[in-house]
Design a protein around this nucleic acid. Structure first.
Length: 320
DNA sequence: GGTAGACCTGGACGC
DNA sequence: GCGTCCAGGTCTACC
């Protein structure tokens, strides 16, 4: 199938814009410029290969590894639109560049995310209190153990319903998630209940409703098991809300080495937060693409990173 | 409201 | 090859 893109869209740039593009089930091949992933489509695992022609704004060509019906094709389309941020129009990105012109020349503005909100939440939990290689490992194991296998042998990310039935001890033993086991199964149960439309601690419709204030979404997220201030702010940006910063040790490193701030870690965090305040609703984009530019100075353009080589090397200490 | 300590895994390092 | 140390957010208990 063919997917229309915004007029300023670049698959290589806009996919390779956030670390999750290095996590399974995602795979970007720098040599061929093909993005592949395995989606869960109504219980069927479908591996898709996505490529774009040479021109910016050219449509995407999507090939699946099996024959799909009309409803399945619609779901593939919806999930790819979410992952690739095809719903963020050129005008929105131009608005960001009006506020922060530093990224107008590269066109940076879109942030890649996962096929579902549940996957974004779980990926965020796998990135808390671990170094990046462990995050890579947890996502690989989660897909291999609890994902669904496609015709071409790849695995999708587990659904909330599947993980909700898992034993925490199995997650710990087979996916190396450590003490996150109970929290992850707890999250899966909450999401599975919400997806079934049952009474749940989580109102999914309210989370994705653009009319809901950021503070209300943050308050709802922070009530979830395993979700603290950092994770909630990160999920907020994955929901397309850029007014808050997920502050972590990377923020402190960036504050010290790039922005030249001095003081205790807590003081530096406050300074970093205040530094990006002028960017308002686009605060996170300015922060993130500044950080991302720093990574690219150290490691080369992100669309040249490979999951199994460059992708494994990201730790704060190595980026100082 | 602020903070100390426990929670796990995997990599680095010393022996 | 083994033991020790360290990085990394969240959560609970306590002041």
């Amino acid at each position: 199938m063919s997917l229309a893109t915004p007029s300023d869209y670049s698959l290589a740039r806009d996919l390779c814009s956030y670390g999750y593009f290095l996590l399974e089930p995602n795979l970007w091949d720098p040599k061929s410029g093909v993005y592949s992933t395995t989606l869960n489509i109504e219980g069927l695992a479908v591996t898709v290969r996505v490529r774009q022609g040479e021109a910016i704004g050219a449509p995407l060509v999507v090939r699946a590894d099996c024959v799909l019906g009309a409803s399945q094709r619609r779901h593939v389309r919806e999930q790819l639109v979410r992952v690739l941020r095809l719903d963020e129009h050129a005008a929105t990105i131009a608005e960001f560049h009006g506020i922060d012109p530093r990224f107008a020349s590269t066109g940076r503005g879109r942030l890649m995310r996962s096929a579902t909100l549940f996957e974004d939440v779980l990926k965020t939990v796998t990135s808390c209190n671990v170094t990046w290689p462990s995050t890579l490992n947890m996502n690989r194991r989660l897909c291999a153990v609890f994902g669904t296998r496609s015709a071409s042998g790849a695995y999708s990310f587990p659904t909330a319903a599947k993980l909700a039935r898992a034993r925490p001890t199995t997650l710990r033993a087979r996916c190396s998630v450590g003490y996150r086991d109970v929290r992850m199964v707890g999250l899966a149960r909450i999401f599975a209940a919400a997806e079934r439309g049952k009474r749940s601690e989580l109102d999914l419709a309210r989370l994705v409703d653009s009319g809901t204030p950021d503070q209300a979404v943050f308050d709802a997220l922070i009530e979830l098991p395993g979700i603290g201030p950092y994770a909630a702010a990160n999920i907020l940006q994955l929901l397309g809300r850029y007014s808050r910063l997920p502050l972590d040790t990377e923020s402190i490193r960036h504050g010290k080495t790039v922005l030249g701030f001095k003081g205790s870690p807590a003081q530096i965090m406050k300074k970093v937060n205040a530094h990006y305040e002028p960017f308002g609703a686009h605060k996170f984009r300015s922060y993130w693409f500044e950080l991302w530019s720093h990574y690219e100075q150290k490691r080369g353009p992100s669309w040249m990173w490979e999951r199994e080589t460059t992708g494994k090397t990201f730790t704060a200490a190595l980026l100082d």
